[in-house]
Design a protein around this nucleic acid. Structure first.
Lengths: 204, 204, 204, 204
DNA sequence: GATGAATGAGTCTTCATTCAT
DNA sequence: CATGAATGAAGACTCATTCAT
């Protein structure tokens, strides 16, 4: 696996893996390309064969992440805006996040940096789309806060809970439950769309 | 205020102000001492008269912040562990945070950096103390998540909600309410200490 | 002279001197800041204390050069457009060039580079101003060529003739004579301003 | 012409064309092989199939240029050293230059670079040969300057006059005329070889 | 209290070049 | 004929830090 021959052809992938690991661990700015290169046992110049700039590495990481979320958003926008849909969005979102925990940890812990990177705006847009899917347009301020907290707690949840003992999967589910409760509370029956039967068709 | 005479003697304070502003805006690593010095119209060397290192500036900022929170923790540990105490902790914490929003924004958005700084450990300790004040020792996982989410939403709340329109004070109250609800839900009547006097023995 | 104390305070000047020497010798691109720093026995960073960028060094060199030429142009524009004025312009220009021969050699031999630098445009402008001072507005193409050749031969003259033996001052005068002849030929009596008496007031 | 098939077999030529274009535009040092390769839509490695080094490309360009000039020199050295021969040399030289204007522009504007390249010396030799053909061995300094100026103005003429309006061919002729006048003036009747047959013994 | 001048270590990035395929 | 992958050397530039004055 670590012979030069075996590494052929997957260097790009290996760069992404190591970079993500280091970015998540020490932050984007404090991770130098020298460090990444050394850990891969290649030269810095090799990185530049695969990525035009340091930022480009982050962008490539982000693009792999954003796809499932984009699909989720697209799917949700075609569903009826029922509570059940919202719950399903939360479920699916939780799973998406689970698949790219390190990247989300990186984004969470390097927000100041990410904001200056070109992906910052894209990321914000996604968050806002999700918020709008959970939130009713004319919701009270308190309910808006509930929705945002729900989203945010799922982002942060994963690694904030790391020091708590317990099975990671159990923790994920606990976070999902609490977050779903918040969304549910933010969508009281009185404010839900009139005909409840549309709800039946919600999730597949 | 901005004449050379008026600036005499409060340079230290002015450095802290500008540094915090820039750290919060662009992150710790991307803010150089040159930038800070230029904005203050002094030389970099002048910064070194007031602070031993760059990290020292952050530490000094942090110390001003941590005091009210330390006091809050000390006070709370002497109170009975009732739900009402927990609610009061939330109220007071919300106000403390309000007083140092930019610093918290900085800590929130530069976690990867802060972790490597000497303040990282101190900060984590405070968070854990607060968590223990809100959480019952043998609480279910879900209730632990509620407490952590409650704390976290108050940290993040302030600047995450910036794009929502509305009076900042209204937003703060909304966040406080939602967070307090989470804490309340995490402390169901059945689990609250049966005899309030047992609370006396709670804190060490 | 070369003790650290003696060097204090004139580092900026020394950088300019060495830089000009190396730029003229090997070209702008092939002269690295490392080279300049090493020859001065300072670090590269020291150069950056005195100049913001590599280009900045060239700009500073150029500004010292351009001043006497600007003055010459200003002076000439206030004189009557007689042949005698033009001859005086050539005389003065030759002396100006003599004072900054290495810089002109640099500009002459690195035109492709200079063009991309910010000084390129400024320089071209000066050349055009000088051309207009020597040339009559509606001159024939051949006379225009004469003027341009006159100017150009003075620029190039100095270092092209280096391999010819003879006293440098003699060579400079020879170039000036030939160039002046070209200008004279480009301003035939028939085309000179009508009233010859205005010519009397020409040179101071 | 630009289909892959049509490009077969003339890649070498295409490299030369693009390289010359870029060298003339931005200079030798600032033109990277990557740039050349990209514009040709081949890889850098492909360039190395056709040329051993970057300098090799310049050398190959130069060799194509130098042949007609070598022929001109050889021819001229066999002619009698009369003024008429010299005039003919100028005429032919002007035409040669016309055929390779971009290369000459490159050499003119990158002298500092060319000097360090292996072609530098070769080029200088040719220039000196030409000078000797135009100049009488024991000419006065002023006449030597005339000859050099004549040569030089023809080199520089082409692109210096670019901003002047007028037909390029007209400009070329104007330059040739002025340059020829300079050569004529440098060869006054009094100094011309008395008996034309003495010309046979001129060149070594 | 503060500055002017400098440093050493490090940053990201680019380049000409090589070579197995 | 040409490429994909990589290298080593070097480039310009920035940073936190120091210290004599």
């Amino acid at each position: 696996m670590s012979t030069p021959q075996a590494r052929r052809g997957n260097t790009r992938q290996r760069i992404q893996d190591v970079a993500l690991e280091l970015f998540a661990e020490h932050g984007y700015e404090k991770t130098s390309l020298r460090e990444i290169a050394e850990r891969l046992d290649v030269t810095k110049a090799a990185l530049y064969y695969h990525f035009k700039t340091k930022e480009d590495i982050v962008i490539s990481l982000f693009q792999d992440l954003v796809r499932p979320i984009d699909e989720l958003i697209t799917w949700a926008q075609e569903q009826p805006r029922t509570l059940e849909t919202k719950r399903e969005v939360m479920r699916r979102y939780s799973e998406s996040l689970n698949g790219c925990a390190p990247l989300f940890r990186f984004m969470q812990e390097n927000q100041a940096t990410v904001r200056d990177l070109s992906i910052g705006e894209t990321f914000k847009r996604r968050m806002y789309d999700l918020f709008e899917l959970l939130n009713e347009p004319d919701a009270e301020l308190r309910d808006q806060v509930r929705c945002i907290t729900a989203l945010f707690s799922m982002h942060a949840g994963m690694f904030i809970l790391q020091k708590l003992h317990g099975d990671p999967e159990d923790k994920r589910k606990a976070v999902l439950e609490v977050a779903t409760e918040l969304v549910t509370a933010a969508n009281p029956p009185s404010r839900r769309p009139a005909r409840p039967d549309s709800a039946q068709t919600a999730a597949p």
